[in-house]
Design a protein around this nucleic acid. Sequence first.
DNA 1: GTAGTATTTGGTCGAGCGTCCAAGGCGATC
DNA 2: GATCGCCTTGGACGCTCGACCAAATACTAC
Lengths: 200, 200
Amino acid sequence: MGETNIERGRNARARLLAAARELIGELGWNAVSTRTLAERAGVRSGLVHYHFDSLQALLRHAALAEVQRMLDGTSALLAGAASPSDGIERMLLDLDQYNGSDSASLLFVETYLAATRDHELRQGMSALVADFRSSLTEALTRSGHPRPQAAASMVLALFDGFVLHRGLDQGLSAEHIAPLLRRITNTEESRITNTEEDGE
Amino acid sequence: MGETNIERGRNARARLLAAARELIGELGWNAVSTRTLAERAGVRSGLVHYHFDSLQALLRHAALAEVQRMLDGTSALLAGAASPSDGIERMLLDLDQYNGSDSASLLFVETYLAATRDHELRQGMSALVADFRSSLTEALTRSGHPRPQAAASMVLALFDGFVLHRGLDQGLSAEHIAPLLRRITNTEESRITNTEEDGE
DNA sequence: GTAGTATTTGGTCGAGCGTCCAAGGCGATC
DNA sequence: GATCGCCTTGGACGCTCGACCAAATACTAC
């Protein structure tokens, strides 16, 4: 295809996105500058505004692509599992790869925060998260969970909070909380509505 | 007492801290500048470095004080409840005041993130969170929970993730997930270890 | 009042920021 | 080999930043 000239462009663009993926987590969304970005990508800073409308647009694009990649990988675990409960537990164990201090974990949280201040990013993130949650909800519904919607929301919140807390407390492990996670994903209705038999 | 001169200083200092409390959530940790801070506090920007060693020190101080205030308020709910399960559920309902987009919610998450990049802040946050978690663990232990440590970790992660997700999905409500929260805080051992009776 | 101390002001410093752009490089096409 | 279009360069623009400091101010103590 000898499109070497165009390939050059695609390459630089991809390297800029990869650099953004790393730096958002390392430095924080607001601390990523065109110059550090260009340096990490091995290009000159002028290129940023050739390939993207603005620095924010670059960061948005990089963040959404990475979040989608992570969510896709995670929901693949759900699809390949024998039951939703197993799938969710595998997802939890899979979360151990995000130790809460690596750039992938932090990118996720940074993107959440940036989304509260950037309308376009917020819409993109909402769509991705809603998709993921509806997969979860659907799986839980099919398995007969009495509150599939609430359980899916809870599992999602738990996962993100899990990653957040790992940044402070490295002792927090997936195996540690897996047994209790099963209580949520159980298809049985909870039998106990009030536990005050145990005073002090 | 005519310490009017010192009072002036205390007042300016307090106003700077209050401004930081607001702005960290509104703009993001890294976007708070000495000048916006001073403007919000109604003082001149030079005062920042008179009352504090650096901008970072001011932000650290303000964030840790506010997080402690929030955690203290929340654990008061636990202390005043009939049982840990009730207390935890009240804490969850109390979380509804943090809608995920207000400056209080965002300050919390911003501080988590900033702690991964600021050693001193990280130590302060770790101590506060560890304190809170140990209160929870102790309460769950006294009530006979089979896995008090794991349950406390889980509840904490769930709460923070809950706030995080509310920023994207305002439909997420505490009442919605309260019934499932009880499954975690239940003092009974989970009876089901494997739920694959429901294929597809 | 005078001296002394704590607080506040207003401005400067060098550095880094996002954005823009004219000029140059470079492979494809004729 | 000339022309064309995409890609890249290097620098300039105006601006904000954290930090710092000498002078001015406000209050206290003598």
